[in-house]
């Protein structure tokens, strides 16, 4: 649930809290990944917090988002529970997906989160489909797909935007241009100056905003949402941002310089938003410290929750394939139950 905007002081403080929560969550996720406690891959969102939070603040609570492999920030911005997220990262039965998904597949459809996605560029068609359900049932919602600068080169992204535009569906496509797809800089992947330029191909609005400025992101998504909900079709938004960590944890990052990283850090979105709130007398340095301490406690609790949670029973590997049982899987599950699965 995204039950905050940027309209009131309380909302703005909540937005700042979410940005801090994302940074703390991912800092700790990186830590436990390095430790070996979190298996698989983790792609951290640190540096890009203003994009996820600015976006979700502009959405209504039951709007849908389709996320990416770099999805933790989207989840927290959308209001998912860090306990259940962390438990999922740790592969625990109490995680959002009962340990079947992990970092790249956290989903909570009831909260409007259509899933992180391990396939680059796969989210936009899903958002177009969610927008189709919304439009067909005349529901007061919109569907937004996050996608990376790299993903923007994928064929299915074009297909999804074209279809949503042609059918005037209530969708928004938000490109998180963090300057790289893995190690390849954006100029080596695209021929356009701005990724939002491609909007012309669909005759929809395309805007590029400063992704380090939460208000700029918020206002662009608000516009896009208004247009989508009005039945005028999708908007393509490009938010220029930067990831502070490697593509994945452990990435050597030989493709960029320390100076470049520092230049972006100098424009850090959390620092900027915090300074603005202090300027407006909505926050004091002491209150900020207190907020940061609370966020650290929230994430420490999430880690404790994840540590304490049970691992799934191996037998659960046979659950959730279908809405009903099929004899094939039942047979394998039964064999596993009787002889530990040695014979299939």
């Amino acid at each position: 649930m995204t039950d905050y905007t940027l309209e009131t002081e309380d909302d703005r403080l909540e937005a700042l809290r979410r940005m801090l929560t994302i940074r703390e969550f991912d800092t700790k996720a990186g830590h436990y990944f390095a430790d070996g406690e979190i298996p698989g891959f983790v792609h951290l969102y640190i540096g890009e917090e203003a994009v996820g939070v600015g976006t979700c603040a502009a959405l209504d609570p039951d709007d849908y988002i389709a996320s990416t492999h770099r999805g933790h920030g989207h989840c927290i911005a959308k209001g998912l529970d860090p306990d259940l997220m962390m438990a999922e990262l740790f592969g625990k039965a109490d995680g959002y997906c009962n340990g079947k998904g992990g970092s790249m597949h956290i989903a909570d459809i009831d909260s409007g989160m259509l899933g992180a996605n391990g396939i680059v560029g796969a989210g936009p068609p899903l958002a177009t489909g969610a927008a189709l359900s919304i439009s067909h049932q005349d529901r007061d919602q919109v569907a937004l797909a996050f996608l990376g600068d790299g993903a923007t080169a994928q064929g299915q992204v074009h297909e999804a935007i074209n279809q949503a535009s042609t059918w005037d569906l209530p969708a928004i496509f938000l490109i998180e241009n963090n300057q790289y797809g893995e190690a390849t800089p954006v100029e080596k992947q695209h021929n356009v100056d701005q990724l939002s330029d491609t909007a012309q191909a669909y005759d929809i609005p395309g805007v590029t905003v400063d992704g380090m400025d939460i208000t700029a992101v918020y206002e662009a998504v608000q516009e896009g949402r208004k247009r989508a909900a009005n039945g005028d079709g999708p908007t393509l938004i490009e938010a220029e941002t930067y990831r502070y960590h490697g593509h994945y944890e452990g990435d050597e990052q030989n493709y960029r310089t320390d100076e470049e990283l520092q230049q972006w850090k100098d424009r850090d979105a959390i620092d900027a938003f915090k300074a603005r709130l202090i300027d407006r007398d909505e926050l004091s340095e002491a209150e900020f410290e207190e907020m940061q301490a609370e966020v650290e406690e929230t994430i420490a609790d999430a880690i404790e929750f994840a540590h304490d949670a049970e691992l799934p029973h191996p037998q659960e590997a046979y659950d959730d394939m279908f809405s009903d049982t099929v004899p094939e899987i039942e047979k394998f599950a039964n064999r596993a139950r009787t002889d530990g699965g040695d014979s299939r």
Binding site: L114, L126, L132, S133, A143, Q156, E159, Q163
Partner: peptide, 20 residues
């Protein structure tokens, strides 16, 4: 639909997950 099988099959998946 447009002649875009990845797009509309994907949209069918997204639609199926969201109530149609």
């Amino acid at each position: 639909t447009p002649i875009a099988e990845a797009g509309y099959v994907g949209a069918a998946v997204g639609a199926a997950a969201t109530g149609t």
